[in-house]
Amino acid sequence: MSGLVIASVVALGGLGVIFAIGLALANAKLAVHRDPLTQEILELLPGANCGACGLAGCAAYAEALAAGKVPANLCAPGGAELSSQLADILGVEVEDQEGAFAIVHCNRSEAKQSVDYHGIKDCKAALLVRDRIYDCEYACLGLGTCARECPFDAIVMSPEGLPIIIEEKCTACGVCARVCPKDIISVEKSTSFVHIQCCSRDKGGVARKNCRRACIACGRCAKICPVDAIEIKEFLAIIDYEKCISCGKCVGECPTGAIGNYRQMRRRKASVA
């Protein structure tokens, strides 16, 4: 009987020792040297894993930062505050980071629906069935994929089914711009106030028939622009934000009201706040 007890103890103990040695060897070979700096940076980052920095997530950005491969001002959600903190830790200088917001380039108010869609409430799913819900092929489908994907809950859907960006919450991470299957959303600097609220590349007549607020490519905005920042490409006015001074002259000139001026909206909000 005592033989059984001893054998059991020796057998199990022996196995334990063998496995322990095996694991110790494996650990020596496979050890991950984690930089404490990486950990420190990771704790500072917002942890939304939005990918605005262009890396695979906060952990990847922290690693790249610690290795000094990337600048410290890439984190859009963290903003200027975070980049200065990061700069302190890393002992580097950062350039000022300008704020930015997501901008919706569609304003299909009073546009007619060409189909009555009752399928899965998701823009990508709807696109599997048909290429449009409204008459305009380029119009926002209004099923709110961007609002659901937004990691900061900065998008709400209006009663007409258009995404509204809540700029106080928007961190310009660009997730909405990436998930939108119609490519209606883009991220623009907060110093730009004037935006084309249409992305129809239909000819003027067709665009106008489909939507009262469409860009009909008349070119009046391009003519009045004092700095030649607007160009008509594929029947759509495009603003060159490098040149645009946000004077807002084109806004009044547009016959269909397809150009939006965000200056007043932002000023109003600033005064309320």
């Binding site: 033989g3 054998a7 095996g22």
Partner: peptide, 25 residues
Amino acid sequence: TSLEPVLRTISYILVIATLVQLVEM
């Protein structure tokens, strides 16, 4: 004498735990 009834489960668990550690590393 067979150790099987005494040590079977515990030694198997030992093996599995070790392997999982290895996979984790």
